[in-house]
Design a protein around this nucleic acid. Structure first.
Lengths: 217, 217
DNA sequence: TAGATTGTTAATCGATTAACAATC
DNA sequence: TAGATTGTTAATCGATTAACAATC
């Protein structure tokens, strides 16, 4: 395909990477509505961005548009999916079978996008043996052994903060490529491992600040 | 206090606001360890930032440090808490009593930081009447009426994406100041309302991209 | 063709980093 | 005082926006 050959070798800024999932989600919706084409201007209006920014972002990966026409939704959605690695069949384990862990495992469309939960671990005897999203909960003590015997790409941490550091180390020793961390701690890990943090409560504090700023003290 | 008088009138960049909760969390940990002082250099090392950046950030709000000494942990923690509005007693309602909603309501320390969940709404007859975190689940149909009779600051949306837009509108009509949105949709709302999105799955796609980028296709 | 919209270069804007005088 | 570290200004870096030739 034309786009791939023209792919630039400049490094992709994090800010661009973070917008790709936003594009992907909206294009998927457009696709389900059988919309065939969309211009950078329309897309920008819907997502609260600028047309320039979208064209600039996409240009990092190739030429997907057609001058005078816009972008073909189906093609662009597929290509962004490929850029994001959604066809790479990632194997995941979850540690922490509380409400948050359950919410994550039961999140729809993960398997459709190539993310497969293979095992769940917890240290609470009461939940061990239980099935969540069709997956049996194993004892946390079996995590290291499990990781030795199975090739896992991503470890998901949904435990209380006290437990997170030790679990992260086990995951790293077990050879995961990335950690998706929901525990409210800064994991100081080897730079080799890619860590994506979701610090839920921090965004509530940000919201609180913005409300205070606007409505006064 | 000295700091407050010197407060600058320049607008606070979003990037700075987003780091305040990070500082706050770590200072709270230091405080629990009875650490008395910390320098911008030490703080930077722990949080993966630069000392310059931290000093620059804090200077938006006043002069909290002491030259040659650093920052008093207790004072700085308290001050950042005030900046974030953690003493403002925010009233919240949650819509959506699934796993994610339960995880949010049961998140520790919210009430300690001034966030109070007052009511929970769902449309699933099976959960209505149930108590979650000590709060009774009411029927979604009662949301509008509840908001009329109670002054709520923040509405939390933890529903499937299809329901989110309509609920957001009800929350806005009901007079909330901010929306904390966990549903994977872009809410196109009146600019008056402050929206903070937590799009969990998008960060998994970002992680996937980074893994793919590093380990090849 | 005429109109529309991309892809890309250049200009602007904003955020981070460096440097250092002020000062505890 | 001497050493340390802030607060702040200036320099750098990076990201966004504007502009427009290329072209469908």
């Amino acid at each position: 395909m034309l786009g791939e050959q023209k792919k630039k070798e400049r490094a992709i800024p994090v800010s661009v990477i973070k917008r790709l999932p936003i594009y992907y989600r909206y294009l998927t919706i457009l696709l389900s509505r059988e919309v065939e084409r969309i211009s950078s201007r329309e897309l920008a209006a819907k997502l609260g961005l600028t047309a320039s920014q979208i064209r600039q972002d996409l240009s990092y990966f190739g030429n997907f548009g057609q001058r005078g026409y816009g972008y073909r939704v189906k093609e662009l959605q597929k290509t962004i999916g490929e850029i994001l690695g959604l066809n790479n069949n990632m194997q995941l384990v979850l540690v922490g079978a509380g409400n948050l862990g359950r919410a994550i495992v039961n999140y729809p469309n993960f398997s459709k996008r190539g993310f497969y939960f293979k095992a769940i671990f917890d240290n609470n005897e009461e939940v061990i043996g239980e099935f969540i999203g069709g997956i049996k909960v194993l004892h946390l003590d079996d995590l290291a052994g499990y990781l030795e015997e199975n090739e896992i790409d991503i470890g998901v941490i949904a435990t209380p903060p006290e437990a997170a550091a030790e679990i992260a180390h086990q995951l790293v020793r077990g050879g995961v490529k990335g950690i998706w961390n929901f525990a409210p701690v800064s994991l100081n890990l080897d730079k080799e491992v890619i860590v994506e943090n979701v610090h839920i409560s921090e965004s509530l504090l940000t919201l609180s600040f913005r409300i205070k700023e606007k409505y006064g003290d």
